Simulated assay, not measured.
Amino acid sequence: MERELVAPVSLTAADGRLNADAIGFARRPLVDTAGVDGRRGWGRTKRWEYWNVITPTHIVALTVSSLDYAAVHEVWVFDRATRRSRGRTATVIPAHDVDLPPSLGDGAAIARARDLAISVTPGTESWRLFAEIPDASFDITVVRPPGHECLAVVVPWSRRRFQYTVKDVALPASGTVVVDGVEHPVPAGSWAVLDHGRGRWPYDVRWNWGAGAGVSGDRVVGLQVGGRWTAGTGSTENGVLVDGILHKISEELRWDYDLAHPLRPWRVRGGGLDATLTPFHDKHSARNLGILSARTHQCFGVWEGSFEGMAFEGIEGFAEDVHNRW
Score class of each variant (00 low, 15 high):
T165Y: 08
R160K: 11
R325I: 13
P265K: 00
R144G: 00
Q224C: 15
L129M: 03
A109T: 04
L241C: 09
W76E: 06
G226Q: 10
F130W: 08
F312S: 13
L100G: 09
A20C: 06
P265C: 02
A113L: 08
V242A: 01
R39S: 15
G181H: 06
P8Q: 07
E252F: 06
L67T: 13
D258M: 02
L253R: 10
D258L: 04
L18H: 08
I140F: 01
D135A: 14
D15E: 05
D195I: 07
H96L: 05
E183W: 00
S103D: 04
V154R: 09
W303S: 09
A188M: 06
G38N: 11
V242S: 01
V242L: 14
H184A: 10
P187R: 03
Y203D: 14
T57Q: 13
L116I: 15
I249Y: 02
S285K: 10
S85P: 08
A71L: 04
S293C: 09
V143S: 09
G270N: 10
E237Q: 13
W209K: 04
P156Q: 06
D32R: 11
V193Y: 02
T121W: 00
F300A: 07
S285W: 08
E237M: 12
G197I: 01
I118P: 12
R27L: 06
